[in-house]
Design a protein around this nucleic acid. Sequence first.
RNA 1: GUACCCGUAGCUCAGCUGGAUAGAGCGUCGGCUUGCGGAGCCGAAGGUCGUAGGUUCGAAUCCUAUCGGGUACACCA
Length: 552
Amino acid sequence: MEEIKQLLTNVCKQLFDLDIMPELTRPDVKFGDYTTNIALVLSAKLNKTPRDVAVMISDKIDSTLISKVDIAGPGFLNISLTDDALVKTMISAAAKPLLGQVAVVEYSDPNPFKVLHAGHLYTSVVGDAIANLLETAGATVHRVNFGGDVGRHVAQTMWAIIDKLGGENPEKLSAIAENERAPWMAECYISGTAAFETNEDAKQLILELNKKIYAIHANKDHDSALSQIYWTCRTWSYDYFDAFYERIGSHFEKYYPESEVADLGLTTVKEQLSKGVFEQSDGAVVFAGEKHGLHTRVFINSQGLPTYETKDVGLIMTKWNDYHFDKSVVITGNEIEQYMSVVLKAIEQFAPELVKVTSHLTHGMVKLKGGIKMSSRLGNILRAVDVLDAAAEANQLATGKNDVDIELGAVKYAFLKQRTGGDIIFDPESSIKLEGNSGPYLQYAHARARSILSKKTLTEKQPITNLEGFERDLTRKVGEYQSIVSQAVTELMPHYICTYLYELAQVFNRFYEQNKVIDDPRENIRLQLVEAYANTLRSGLDLLSISAPEQM
RNA sequence: GUACCCGUAGCUCAGCUGGAUAGAGCGUCGGCUUGCGGAGCCGAAGGUCGUAGGUUCGAAUCCUAUCGGGUACACCA
């Protein structure tokens, strides 16, 4: 592809003495392998008709890679590659544009003392894919997680916990069975939140508790009854998170609790307050975003406590200190998009180099098609396990079996196939289906191709030449993989991979429908194509953190 | 009120750094099976790309206005 671009650049230089960067796109198969619109772009500048320009360029093109150049439509140049060039593209190694770079990807971000909801599942799935993409582009990737182990939500849960324990009685926690811990805390969060909103006395107690919990961290208190309850329950939360990540196959290198970054945030904000980045307002410390077309946000509240904004400042600084990254990606729900703009704008005032390499990627909400029986006991939210259970249930219903790899593949693919940004309407039933654009369809497609390969082992490989129609289509499609991956990397958009893999499987199925592989005179070449296809499929599924079974 | 996101086939979505007849899947209707996994393949019907202007040789894509939906806007996270 780069060779073709270079060729076009050279031709235009010779013909018109113009330096151009030609655009090369992959058109519909019937038009050829590549298309460029340079003739249309140049025609105005040269004061010639697009077709005349196209003819001039076309006549001048001479390359062993190209078998044919057609002029079509208003003046497109449709380029067809030789079989050799096509095969070369198919087996070309992946580009590593980020080689040597350090990337930090932060995602999932669940809060201790709260339940994991569907959004956590979504961001985990997207984050894994983004991290994989950066990794495949050559970067050293650090997957990190962040969560609020201090703050009002914690105080709310703690208030309810203490209430249920009949006071600060940590020894009573042992009465709660291991598998009941997470749901029990989730309930406490619900009742604590309700109390905060409706009960003035409780509200005051919770605000007091909030300060006390900060003090536990400040004093490294592990002795007081309150701190024992706190540390035990925080550990329960982490255990619950770990179990969940294990279940979905996510792995984090580091978990940043808010309590560990809040101090750095606080000192940074205070330091910048004196330099005029932040200002005092009604007893709080704020960043006046209006100057930058944004809105004002509070960084330190009038009680002197850091808000989420300041913790985010601390987090970014901490990540920088830990990794000195070349690229930092933060993935969150889209409801905090404008919030994050303010935080980043504030940081930009004193550390522009960090903000410059930071991307904030947002996603929408997950909604279950047809709704779900909401439990008010659990706060009427769609929990992460509800989504996984829905997929498992659909699989059980459809196949009578439970296969975790298939169920996870179904959920992950359903989440990833859509462009990241908007809401997702998750339909468990169609996600689990092996027909249509689903994860299991691709898993099945892979297993099927492996099954062909398992029947015959190639001892020597013949050169792939004289490609026939469907062989050629498959070769061409497999060859697109690398450019699709680099597009996904550049835009941090995993859905390009999904779209491509699905198209790839369709192209293969067409080939397979028409061509016998085993015991055909072209068996050797076709087996090589099947293998290249299967490897590409597996490689793509790997990027999505979806398993590619050998059989199913 | 201000800012951001979204509006494409009955449903769920691609396509958006402007380019050829706007594409998939599901659903609907019709065909293909003596061949390696038919969980597939081929075909048909189905679209004023929210609406109205503008820029352009060319607009789903860019600009403006407008309607509809969502979200965020001071001490929650």
